[in-house]
Amino acid sequence: MSVGNDSGPHPVSTAEGPSVPIHLRPATEADVPVLVPLLLRLKRLNEEFDPLLKVREDADEQARNLLKANLSDPKSVVLSAEGVGADKDKVVGFVRAVVRERPFYHPEFEGVILDIYLLPLYRRRRVGEYLLHEVSAALKAKGAGVVTAEFPAQNEIAVRFYAKRGFRPITAIHARSL
């Protein structure tokens, strides 16, 4: 629908830092209990876009295990965003990414952004932009020569967010039920 639905979470890009100074740091094992619900919020958002993205009943446990595995995996990057003021020391968002090898292409290593999530009050305030900038740097430091992002094809907010920051579609995943 084209009507009125312009409430994307992210502003037009600039190279400036976040107008809300959040504190971004590598996630730790202690963050897992607060990261799990944020990750599940993102997966439930994805569910809105396609029935083939229906969230499993055990998603909670899966999220916990996955995050723990990521935290001990040198190829993964998980950053926690802490709020300020009343939200000081509270994790208000995160980004999760992994470095994958590309056996056939240059550059050889690809940094894949798997999840970016921010609580609503931190959207449209350039925090997402900042997260993208920081995770890209972390992926580059791990050897990635290209950064990609995975998200539901119907998520136009994400499409716009990345397009404004120079991303273009390079591969597509098409699906049908079996």
Binding site: N5, S7, R41, R44, L45, E48, L119, P120
Partner: peptide, 15 residues
């Protein structure tokens, strides 16, 4: 702002 259905509202009822 942190209610569970906020993301759904963002898509379905931005008002």
């Amino acid at each position: 702002a942190e209610r569970d259905d906020m993301d759904e509202l963002m898509l379905r009822n931005p008002w």
